[in-house]
Computed example of a mutant assay.
Amino acid sequence: MSATRRLGVGVLGAHAWAEHAHLPGFAAYERCRRVAICDVVPERARALAERFGFERVYADAREMLADPEVEMVDVCTPTGTHRELAGAALAAGRHVLCEKPLALSAADAFGLARLAAEKGLRTKVGFTFRYSAALKQVKRWIEDGTIGEIFHVHGFQQNSQFLDPNFPLRQYDTEDPDGPLVPASIVGYGSHLVDLLRWLAGDFRAVSALMRNFVPERMVRGKEGLRRVPIDDGTVAAVDFRSGAQGVIQTSFIAIGNYPGIEIRIYGSKVAVVARLVTEFGVAETLHLARAGEVEFRPVELSADRYPPGTDVRTPWRELYYRQLARDWTDEILDEGPAENTFLDGAMSQQMVDAVVLSHRERRWVDLSEMPS
């Protein structure tokens, strides 16, 4: 590892998620050179640049992409802009980290993955929870055979952010109160679960899903009064893995519990594990394990070196996981290490999300081979 080489980082977007996750992650790692922040509201970018030690500010993405000292571009902007900005950054010859989803369709996401491969550039998706120490340990147990053959994989997400109809919902691209259900929880949080289950247990074969709206009228950001917004508040899906394992995915905007509240359960032939990425009583995550023949799960304590320097299991989850993401991503580029969590992974996640939506709309099992790739 080079002690002097630093990666020139440019961040597109100066909103809340950049402020609470991305920027603290880069600021905490000495191998990152904080070159620039770009936002359409320059004052917002300037305030965060001063706070996190970035050298300069741009109001136009094209100008930042032309900056020769920006080697890696972090796309941390609203969902509808991801495909265009990530594509522009790749076209400019920059390595790219992009928040999920990469695009609004799997076809467009696969297009970005192909563009990166053609240009020989590295990519990363903001799948924050891959950087959980607990889930990394589960991944090790799968790879070294500790868990054995995987039988069941369950991914649950509890989040009651939008249970209260007076809590403003982000805007969705629909104005038809009686139109088809708009994918929401399966995109906003389901994409994380889909990626985690595929990362841990392998590729999917088929899915059967049901989406439902439970809160018919809500406040919407930028609009007045309650209005009907037909979004999916909750999705549940049965999953057939290519390995033969069975899976369940459940996402929700209205399930009472801690945000983001992700829980992964894996039941194997030798061991069962439960990883809860749920902040409870100041602890960001817990890990439990049971061996064949046991009827009780026991806690697993991870050593301090499993967490980024300056953090521990009581660090707020956004900073805890994104510090690790920033370190892994920077080291991957500077040290030319193995590529992980790439745009291809983002496209595969979007492919499954699209299959879930299609399954709901057509009320049938959908084979993943039917989907764009």
Rank of each mutant, 00 (worst) to 15 (best):
A66R: 14
D74H: 07
R62L: 13
H95L: 06
E71N: 09
A88H: 06
V73F: 05
V75F: 02
E71G: 08
E69P: 08
F54K: 03
D67C: 02
A47Y: 15
A92Q: 13
R94P: 08
D67I: 00
A66K: 06
G53T: 10
E69K: 05
P78L: 02
E50H: 15
E84I: 09
D60W: 11
A61Q: 05
V75I: 11
A59Y: 12
E71V: 05
P78C: 01
M72V: 13
D67W: 06
A92H: 11
L90P: 03
E55N: 12
T79V: 15
L85E: 02
A66N: 10
A92L: 11
E84P: 02
A47S: 15
V96F: 06
A66D: 10
R46I: 15
T77A: 11
V73K: 02
T79N: 13
A66M: 09
A49I: 13
F54M: 08
R62G: 09
D60R: 10
G93D: 12
R62M: 12
R56T: 06
L48D: 00
Y58I: 09
D60E: 08
L65N: 02
V75M: 01
A61T: 00
C76S: 00
R46H: 15
P68M: 01
E55H: 07
H95R: 04
D60M: 08
V57H: 01
L90N: 03
M64A: 04
E55T: 13
P68Q: 02
C76T: 00
E69F: 14
F54I: 08
T79P: 13
A88K: 12
L90K: 07
R51C: 07
V57R: 01
E63A: 14
A91R: 04
G93C: 04
V70K: 07
E69W: 15
H82W: 00
A86Q: 03
A89L: 11
Y58C: 07
A89T: 12
D74A: 13
C76W: 04
V57K: 01
